[in-house]
Write a protein that binds this DNA or RNA. Structure first.
Ligand code: MN
Ligand code: MN
Ligand code: MN
Ligand code: MN
Lengths: 233, 233
DNA sequence: GCTTTTGTTTAGACGTATCTAAATCATGTT
DNA sequence: AACATGATTTAGATACGTCTAAACAAAAGC
């Protein structure tokens, strides 16, 4: 009943919906790479199966069951991505497509063993949180989009979200990976942000829509003697 | 065009056909767990697609393309089985079902990396040969079915073919795995063969149809001083 | 050789997943 | 308030993969 395709629709709707705003047919169609009538047919079926709340012309929102389904696939996807990088030498730009297929075909047992082998990791190779076995997910609150940082901010890359393989390769070549320290040196008024990569001292300019998907948190290491103060705060 | 289902049909036909005897509809139906009309429809489609030679009422035989397809899936299947045992702690009774699903969803790249990680292995956890990247397969000529061994034969288990998870678990519990040395102590006239397992000294009786799927080869280690003679022969 | 049995194929159906073309709804504009 | 625009849904089609029931062919039995 929950086929691989349904699982992909669940993931799309999960990403597109918001607390109060449902995912609209056209958005889902774009995300899934299909035409709107295909989405309409699918949403009707998923509504019949209790996976989404759907009313014609009003878009769809996941039910509790639908959300569980989405989180299960997301868990499989992210564990796979990490498994491929850690165990099979993939890099973070290659893993997505492979995981997008395999995510639908893992037994419970295999997921558990992969998770155990990786040591119950919290995040995938892009810093995205991995839902736990009971499908809890904790988004990181202390991070912020690079696109919203002020000039002069120094911060550490903690997540790169929703990016294409091309963007991910480019970032890697520019010296950016999880944990890289950046300093925002300029925010131009025409949608461009320039950072200095701390490891290489090289400047790097990015369009805002790319920067918007890069999340950073405050620098990891306060100087030795400041450590205590930080923990007390 | 070659969907996962088609791949499974290719595998079934590969196992069932013989040089001159095609795989018959009923056999394929039994192997695939479907009804005969389903097979007829499928064989017609596969014939249209150039995967089998098919004439009504005469069964099907793989074309060259079909055989390549079958070997590709077999390669994926067996590499996966070995990967699951070597890297994820599965045992030989558990791997089949998992591999039977995943075998259809591996990219070329992933297969290559798995093969490299395993060191281009020759056989899977059941001793079945793994087709090479260019889809060559070399069946082991020097082995023989346990069911055909004479009383008194001493030999080493080199393959356990086509066996259910139950049989594989039973054999494992009885101390039989690849490389186990067996001595045939009795062949009863009513379809039963009794062996002694050399490691445990325990006797083990098996029905002929089970023994028929166990293949053995001559004992691996000639005594140290006989080694040279053996290689010269 | 005719007949029965057995295995195979055809006919007609259903669910999944997709499309195009046409009809319909919702909304923002005049 | 009527209209035009754009998004959405319905209608009707196709491919895959399966089923049941009915028609048919081949082999075996007499
Ligand atoms: Mn997917
Ligand atoms: Mn990811
Ligand atoms: Mn399979
Ligand atoms: Mn095997």
């Amino acid at each position: 009943m929950v086929t691989p395709k349904v699982e992909d629709y669940l993931k799309s709707i999960y990403r597109l919906q918001d607390r109060d705003t449902p995912a609209m047919t056209a958005e889902v169609a774009a995300a899934m790479g299909v035409k709107p009538p295909t989405v309409t047919a699918m949403l009707q079926r998923m509504a019949d199966d209790g996976l989404v709340h759907y009313q014609r012309y009003q878009g769809a929102q996941l039910t509790d069951r639908g959300e569980k389904g989405a989180l299960k696939v997301l868990r499989n996807h992210r564990l796979l991505e990490l498994f491929l990088t850690e165990e099979l030498g993939y890099d973070w730009a290659e893993v997505h497509d492979e995981a997008d297929v395999l995510e639908h075909h893992l037994s419970e047992t295999l997921v558990e063993r992969i998770e155990a082998l990786l040591g119950s990791p919290a995040v995938d190779p892009h810093g995205e949180p991995i839902p736990t076995a009971d499908l809890e997910i904790r988004e990181c609150e202390t991070q912020q989009s690079l696109a919203k940082c002020q000039e002069g901010t120094v911060a550490v890359v903690s997540e790169v979200r929703e990016s294409s393989a091309d963007v991910l390769s480019y970032l890697a070549k520019a010296g950016i990976s999880l944990g890289t320290e950046l300093e925002v040196v300029e925010t131009a008024p025409f949608g461009m942000i320039t950072c200095k990569v701390r490891t290489t001292e090289k400047p790097l300019s990015l369009p805002t829509d790319v920067a918007a998907e890069i999340y950073v948190s405050r620098p990891a290491e306060p100087a030795e003697n400041e450590r205590r103060e930080y923990n007390e705060a």
